[in-house]
Design a protein around this nucleic acid. Structure first.
Lengths: 201, 201
DNA sequence: TTTATTCAGAGAACATGTTCACTTAATAAA
DNA sequence: TTTATTAAGTGAACATGTTCTCTGAATAAA
């Protein structure tokens, strides 16, 4: 059964949504989260203030939507460039460093995105958790391969190990915001590497 | 040099501050963070709305101040009740579980407190980081004792290991808010124990 | 003691996220 | 084709965090 062709209303609504997202991305990328106002986004998009709320339930969701394509792309990019012929630790640090670079490059935006994570609408929470699960699964696969190579103790559960490594990663990322704006991805990666060595031994 | 006796102004200001904190604690404990309004706190304390801002720079700081004594007490309590004649793992889980119990008992408040952590005024950030450092130091001591007992590999750096375990703890705590309101401290403790085993092996 | 200064407190004013009542173009029904 | 319904868009209204101007009690200075 062919999906019905979008009617004019649906087309226009989608166009308005794109306008909003483009304007939001522009403002969120160049200003602090708190400085960006819904009024500002509406003005830049040349739409009514209330229209934003026809598309997004709140400012946070707008931020998440504006950000989510970047993150998906980043994830795919990081995974596509994982070096095959290196140790798991090198692989893991490579992936993590890609994220550190993104987050530190967009400091204010990332701070807002990450810190409000607990308050996202369920829809976004589901998406974030799916992403985390997918990431953990990918890590588990890389760990399994490393175990087959005899690089990591095969008695360790690769899924649990993946979660432990993820927690190391999030801890380091959190410290980026908690401790004097640590904005060098290399330093973050180095700290993570220190933690990871303890976990992998 | 004896500190000068507080004049009437300082005494009254301190009294007002206590009134504010008591009212804030009452409201934050019984309502969602977002439901508690500065106007509500002011009304309960029977003071002017602007007065709150003479004492606290913003709502978040008010929350942190209202909460901080509880957390300090909790920390001291947890440390005072660490079982001496048990394995490090048991000790670590005991401490963590005390925190899990507190956070899950005050779910909404904790969610707000933890999620806004990246946005605290520097004063509070310093306090939080001091607390974390102190906690990490204490963990390192417990680890060192366990290494002396031959319980943990003595080749591992106890300070790095403490940080790795802390990251496990924070990861589990974060998942409390991200994944369908996991509100059973026993379950959180069990998940943490799974992760810790990987890190300690 | 009187006068001048300071600052804690008050509440009006402001800024911004959000809601809501209204409008009208688009779509469906008759 | 005409009429009825729907929903995207609008901006006024509202709620709440915060700022700001003013007041007067407390303190310092003369």
């Amino acid at each position: 059964m062919e999906q019905p062709k979008a009617n004019r209303r649906e087309v226009q609504k989608a166009e308005t949504r794109i306008l909003i997202l483009e304007s939001a991305r522009k403002l969120f990328k160049t200003q602090d989260y708190d400085t960006v106002t819904i009024r500002g986004v509406a003005a830049l998009a040349r739409i009514g203030l209330g229209t934003i709320y026809k598309h997004f339930p709140n400012k946070l969701s707008l931020l998440a939507a504006a950000f989510s394509d970047d993150l998906k792309k980043l994830y795919q990019d990081a995974m596509a460039t994982v070096p095959d012929n290196q140790s798991f630790q090198t692989q893991f640090i490579h992936i993590s460093k890609r994220f550190f670079t993104f987050y530190t490059t967009h400091y204010s935006l990332s701070r807002a995105y990450l810190s409000h994570m607990f308050f996202y609408e369920q829809e976004w929470l589901d998406e974030i958790n799916d992403f985390d699960d997918s990431y953990a699964q990918k890590m588990a696969e890389l760990i399994l391969a490393a175990q087959d190579r005899g690089e990591i103790n095969p008695e360790k559960d690769c899924h649990i190990l993946a979660l432990a490594l993820m927690s190391n990663y999030f801890f380091v990322l959190a410290n980026c915001f908690l401790r004097g704006k640590m904005t060098d991805p290399d330093k973050l990666a180095a700290l993570l590497e220190t933690l990871v060595e303890q976990t992998l031994l």
